[in-house]
């Protein structure tokens, strides 16, 4: 049995905004019945670019229905500009977390939104292709572009991660070598940024420690505290930072995601781009 959060259970039991909008301004469909999940998103948008109504039809499991419901709830009443910034992680956050194997449900929600917004701008979107780019996983029709974007947004490190988030590689497995190549390429990418950093003077140990402490206190803690979570700095050893997640973070299912996407990302942004964060339980 999946370990679904109460929010996920609530939303697949009583999904909001089910149905279609007959005079929708834009309709976007992603996924397919072959893949095992599909989502059709209907949006109504007023002259001020405010999304006044959003409805969905979903073929899929409990978490696919919950992700679709969450997406529509998140965007109604918002400006298109604002909605453009929504990522699959925001959907996951809204749901209080998703099992790793079900992350692709949140990605599907985000894909539908992205496709709808593209169509709205009049950009051409080809049918049955999630994004432009070469199809890497033929079983599930997952493209190169989608895989790369999901790797970057979710800081994915392994082929298993990619499969959990996009399904790519989950069937016949013949694209796994290609997925490994993409992972390597994406890992090598920040190299251009690194060069800029290298020209800077390397940090002394004391300065690095000061910066880590400042960033945790001034940047990271306030974000976590918004969600009734907290963080404690346990130790710093060179570029390895040891922290403990407290409050609601400590038993959060996506604490690992929080650690990588928030804590490590912020420390890399504010201190050094090769800081590694470890969690002490």
């Amino acid at each position: 049995m999946w370990d679904y959060t109460d929010k996920v259970k609530e939303l697949y039991t009583n999904p909001k905004n089910v149905g279609k909008i007959d005079d929708a301004d834009v309709v976007a469909e992603v996924g397919s019945i072959v893949c095992g999940d599909a989502l059709k998103l209907y949006l109504k948008i007023d002259d001020n670019d405010i999304i006044t109504d959003a409805k969905f039809e979903t073929f899929g499991c409990g978490s696919a229905i919950a992700s679709s419901s969450a997406l529509t709830e998140m965007i109604v009443g918002k400006n298109v500009k604002e909605v453009e910034k929504i990522t699959n992680q925001d959907i996951v956050k809204y749901l209080g977390g998703l099992p790793e194997e079900k992350m692709h449900c949140s990605v599907m929600g985000h894909e539908a939104l992205e496709k709808a917004l593209k169509q709205l701008k009049g950009e051409k979107v080809e049918d049955h292709v999630d994004e432009e780019g070469e199809i890497i996983c033929h079983c599930f029709g997952v493209t190169d572009d989608l895989i790369r974007r999901v790797i970057r947004e979710n800081n994915l490190k392994t082929v298993e991660d990619i499969t959990n988030y996009t399904k790519a590689g989950g069937a016949c497995g013949s694209c796994i070598p290609k997925l490994e190549d993409i992972l390597e390429e994406e890992a090598a990418k920040p190299a251009s940024d690194k060069k800029k950093e290298e020209t800077k003077k390397p940090l002394t140990n004391i300065r690095r420690m000061q910066l880590v402490e400042e960033t945790i206190t001034n940047v990271i803690r306030p974000i976590l505290q918004e969600d009734r979570g907290d963080i404690e700095l346990v130790d710093i050893d060179g570029k390895n930072v040891y922290v403990a997640l407290r409050g609601s973070c400590s038993n959060c299912m996506v604490s690992n995601v929080t650690l990588k996407n928030l804590v490590e990302a912020k420390l890399r942004e504010y201190v050094e781009n090769d800081i590694v964060v470890h969690e002490i339980k």
């Binding site: 697949y12 039991t13 019945i33 095992g36 073929f59 899929g60 499991c61 409990g62």
Partner: peptide, 14 residues
């Protein structure tokens, strides 16, 4: 047809 098994199971479970 047209609906997904896990969703059926979750609704049955309820």
């Amino acid at each position: 047809e047209f609906i997904e098994g896990e969703a059926i199971l979750l609704y049955l479970d309820a």
